[in-house]
Simulated scan of single mutants.
Amino acid sequence: MHTIFGKQYNDGTPLGEYETRLEGEQFYRIHKTSLVHLKYVDSIFPWTGNGFALRVRGEDTVLPISRDQVRELRRRLSI
């Protein structure tokens, strides 16, 4: 199961393939199971201990961000 843009997909395609296809399209891999479109990131916030998560605009779902991805995500969002 993959989460892309806040929607879940289970089609058997490796997430890395989606990541490659969407390169240059403002998508960013925030976790081993999740890609998000940077245009729709609503907020990044502390979550569970020293981790972080985000919300996608218009969705209630909380998506965890891998600790090693937070710095680059903030850079790309200029925050």
Rank of each mutant, 00 (worst) to 15 (best):
M1R: 06
H2F: 11
H2P: 06
H2G: 10
H2K: 15
T3I: 13
I4T: 08
I4C: 10
I4D: 05
I4M: 10
F5I: 04
F5E: 13
G6P: 12
G6S: 15
G6W: 00
K7I: 15
K7G: 14
Y9P: 14
N10L: 13
N10K: 08
N10T: 10
T13S: 02
P14V: 08
P14N: 07
L15R: 01
G16N: 09
Y18P: 14
Y18S: 11
T20N: 13
T20H: 06
R21K: 11
R21L: 12
R21S: 09
R21A: 12
R21H: 04
L22F: 06
L22E: 03
E23G: 00
G24L: 11
G24Q: 05
E25L: 07
Q26H: 11
H31E: 12
H31F: 05
K32C: 02
T33L: 06
S34R: 00
S34Y: 06
S34A: 15
S34L: 01
V36L: 03
L38F: 00
L38D: 02
L38P: 08
L38S: 03
L38N: 03
K39P: 07
Y40C: 12
V41G: 02
D42R: 10
I44H: 00
I44K: 05
I44M: 14
F45Y: 07
F45G: 06
P46C: 07
W47N: 11
G49I: 01
G49Q: 05
G49S: 05
N50C: 07
N50I: 11
N50Y: 12
G51S: 15
G51I: 05
G51H: 15
G51N: 13
G51T: 01
G51A: 10
F52D: 08
F52K: 03
F52W: 04
F52Q: 11
F52A: 14
A53R: 07
A53I: 08
A53M: 09
V56M: 10
V56K: 10
R57K: 12
R57Q: 14
R57V: 04
G58N: 09
D60G: 15
D60S: 15
D60K: 15
D60Y: 04
D60Q: 15
T61I: 07
V62K: 12
L63A: 06
L63T: 02
L63V: 04
P64C: 02
P64A: 03
P64G: 00
I65M: 00
S66W: 04
S66E: 11
S66N: 09
R67V: 09
R67C: 09
R67I: 14
R67K: 10
D68I: 08
V70D: 02
R71C: 10
E72I: 04
L73M: 09
L73D: 10
R74S: 08
R75Q: 11
R75K: 08
R76G: 05
R76A: 02
L77N: 09
L77C: 05
L77F: 04
L77P: 12
S78P: 00
I79C: 07
